[in-house]
Design a protein around this nucleic acid. Sequence first.
DNA 1: CGTTTGCTTGAATTCTGTCAAAGCAGGTGG
DNA 2: CCACCTGCTTTGACAGAATTCAAGCAAACG
Lengths: 196, 196
Amino acid sequence: MHDFSSILNHIAPHITLNEKDKELFISVLSTNKVKRKQLVEQPGYVSKYRTYVVKGVLRGFIIGSEGQEHTISLAVDDCFIGDSGSFLFQEPATLFIQAIEDSTLIQWSFESEQLLLDKIPQYAKVMMQRSQQIAVMIQRRVISQLSLSAEERYEEFSQKYPAFVQRIPLHVIASYLGMSREFLSKIRNQKINSKR
Amino acid sequence: MHDFSSILNHIAPHITLNEKDKELFISVLSTNKVKRKQLVEQPGYVSKYRTYVVKGVLRGFIIGSEGQEHTISLAVDDCFIGDSGSFLFQEPATLFIQAIEDSTLIQWSFESEQLLLDKIPQYAKVMMQRSQQIAVMIQRRVISQLSLSAEERYEEFSQKYPAFVQRIPLHVIASYLGMSREFLSKIRNQKINSKR
DNA sequence: CGTTTGCTTGAATTCTGTCAAAGCAGGTGG
DNA sequence: CCACCTGCTTTGACAGAATTCAAGCAAACG
């Protein structure tokens, strides 16, 4: 049997599921291991599972009209990732979801999600708060993009997610922050040089 | 008594509330009229109400370090607006929420929200879907900002929200799309000239 | 009316992107 | 253990997109 304590702690830190609900919840989960570079979702295919990253790093990205990759979302240890639009409406995805490191996932199907929503009232409540929280996080990103320069965006990013800077390749961070890898490289060196 | 049909239709198009729930829901609502330029929320004050725009136009914005306004969200007829982070966590807001036109709002308090979440299981479910939908919309905006040029962003915006172009001043649209009002003005004229 | 508010225009400037070449690191096979 | 990949990062010269500044105009408002 697998260890689902991490997701239970994360999804339900403030509510207490009774034994029955906990059992139901665990019964729909399945564990999944993916290798570096492996795709979990891709454009054209419907997202069938909600995906929670137990350990590892994944990203969501699109490929622009001139072939450039744009990183839309990042997930490191203990958080959700996926093409949420595709999952929510059960329509073809627009994002690639890809592992950056070998990673361990917990997933449950769209049908299970409906079941949980119906059977466990608290599940809907908690997931509503999660969704709102995620919306707030994405909105913060919009704010950074609107109000900060490339340099300031990187500064904020590295303050906020020091772990990401270590584990995610530079060109991915650049495409997440909306600048070219070359320019990010320059910013990084400016910082290092100005420190001395 | 007020007419709450618009919000009932909008919030709950796919679920049917029984009479009791409908009554409870309506009992916590209050209608509010605001004038052009009036502030509904502002930084430093906790957002106490969920706000639904029945009719009118509002926007959320911040003021940057050099005094420039950045429009974070827009709401026209039949949608939600507010500093969702402030409402969710009941902590001081970071956004100004301001009426662009004279507008009619429906609001309910944070306490009422908790009540609805507890008493009406379907409320949580519907609001979860709404929140996810909103997250998807904001993410689409991130994608535009990352992958499109200023001109393409305006093109997309005017295709997607033709109504907004009519009712929202140019400098607000510019600050929403992340470009200077001057540049947007130029883009607009290019379009008009190339049409002939 | 005068005054505010919002929109347009052109020229100079700044930030960030592009391109091409070179450097470095980790992994693989001989 | 070394040589050689391959993938990722760095560097510098140059180009371009979008901003800033400054001024003028138009429309809306009290």
